[in-house]
Amino acid sequence: MDASRITERTYWRTWIALMALAAATFGLSFLDLGMLHVPVALLIAGAKATLIALFFMHLVQERGSIPIAVGIWFLLLAILIALTAADVLTRDVMLRPPASGP
């Protein structure tokens, strides 16, 4: 609970990791990854966001109600994004007439 457990050394390491990940995603954007282009970019962004939340925002040392609150809002965001994606990705399928039975 006490924020003093995270040291400046951790902040340095987090910053170096963040810059390395930024360089990695920058480099990967020039490669032709095809279908993987968007997932890879979002995965790296997610990794950076996780590092920032855990170490800069001290989430790694929080106990009790704070991880629960963060977990719930993360779940709500996932539902928002997943349902939107489910809608737009299945529109073609749903507009097609139903297949006739056997």
């Binding site: 920058f26 282009h37 979002l42 962004a45 950076k48 966001a49 920032i52 800069f56 925002m57």
Partner: peptide
């Protein structure tokens, strides 16, 4: 501490804006 958390959150938002508007070309 709280002001820092706000600033880090603003940073996180940009971490997602950057690939979506610049890198995924």
């Amino acid at each position: 501490e709280l002001g820092g958390m706000y600033w880090h959150f603003v940073d996180v938002v940009w971490v997602f804006l950057w690939p979506l508007f610049y890198l995924l070309r």
